[in-house]
Design a protein around this nucleic acid. Structure first.
Lengths: 148, 148
DNA sequence: CCAAGTGGTCAAGTAGCTTGACCATATAGT
DNA sequence: ACTATATGGTCAAGCTACTTGACCACTTGG
C-alpha cells in the first residue's frame, strides 16, 4: 500500500471521528445537557461502571491529575458527578456519576446511535458491524487522548 | 442495533483516531520536525495542492480567521510555509508550503503508512482496504475540526 | 463612484491545560 | 514500631491556543 493511500485512509478516519464527535456533542446539547464538552464524555465513560478516583481519570485521559481534578470540579458543579469518601483509602475520593450524569450518558448513547444509524443507511448494517469489529481489533489500549 | 453497540463502535473509532493522531505526531517528531502540532497537519493538507488563503484555512479548520492567521504565523516562523502576494487579489495573501513543509508532509505520510501497515498485520491488507472504502463513504464533507 | 462585502491584522480576554510546591494518608524497609 | 518513601489530592501561578471586537485595505456591484 502506498503512503498516499495510507494518508487518504487516515484523513477519512480522522474526518469521520471528528464528525462523530461533533454529532454526539450536538445531540447531547439538543437533549438539554448544557455545558458539557466532548472531553467530559471520555470521563463519563471511565466513571460509569463503579466510579473512579481523580488520578485514575487522569491516567485514562492522559492529562495531569490537576487537570482531571478541575474536570471533576466542573462536573460536580454542573451536577453530573459527586465526590464520595473512598471506602478503602482515606486519602482518595471516589468520583461517581449522579442520576443526571447517567441521563447524560444515555443521551450521548442515543446521539451516537443516531449517527451510526446514518452510516447504516449508507453502508448497510452488515458493513457497519464489520466496521465495528475491525475498529475494535485495531483500537489501542492506552489512555484515550481527547485532543490532537 | 442497540445504543450500547453504537457507543462501543464510537468508542473504538475515537480510540483508533486518537491513537493514529498520536502515532503520526510521534513519527513526524522522530523524523526531525519539531514544534509541529497535530493541528498543523490539517493545515498542511489544505495548503498542499496549490496553497490557500488564511480565510480558506480558517473555514477548512473550523476556526476564526484570526486563529488561522496565528497558525500561519507559526508555520512561517518555523519555516514550513511562506506568505506570497495573491496573484488575483491584492488584499489576500497566498500561503504556500516551503520545501521543508513538503518534507514534513512526506514525513507525516510515512508515519501514517507505518501505523496503517500495523493494521494490515492485524486485519489483513484486504480488510484494511475495505475499511478505507467504508470510511471514505461515511466521511462528512464540512470542515475538519481538529479538536474535541 | 460610492456602498457594502471580504481578506487580513492588532489588541485584549478566556478556558483548559501545564509545572511546581505542598499536605495528608498509605506502604515498605529495617 | 518507626521512619522513609510513595501516592492521592489541593492550591497557586503561568502558558497557549483559541475567542471576540475593532479596524484598515482592497474588491465588487448597483
Amino acid at each position: 500500500m502506498q503512503n498516499s493511500e495510507a494518508m487518504a485512509l487516515s484523513a477519512a478516519l480522522l474526518a469521520v471521528a471528528g464528525g462523530l464527535t461533533q454529532r454526539i456533542h450536538e445531540g447531547v446539547l439538543a437533549r438539554g445537557f448544557e455545558g458539557v464538552r466532548p472531553a467530559h464524555g471520555f470521563a463519563f465513560a471511565r466513571l460509569a461502571p463503579d466510579g473512579a478516583t481523580a488520578t485514575d481519570l487522569a491516567a485514562h485521559l492522559g492529562v495531569t491529575k490537576q487537570a482531571a481534578s478541575q474536570l471533576v470540579d466542573e462536573m460536580v458543579r454542573k451536577g453530573y458527578a459527586e465526590r464520595r469518601p473512598h471506602p478503602e483509602d482515606a486519602r482518595a475520593r471516589l468520583v461517581v456519576l449522579t442520576e443526571r450524569g447517567w441521563a447524560c450518558t444515555r443521551a450521548a448513547e442515543e446521539a451516537a446511535a443516531e449517527a451510526v444509524r446514518e452510516w447504516g443507511d449508507l453502508l448497510g448494517e452488515r458493513e457497519v458491524r464489520a466496521l465495528g469489529r475491525q475498529l475494535l481489533r485495531i483500537a489501542p489500549r492506552g489512555p484515550i487522548r481527547p485532543a490532537w
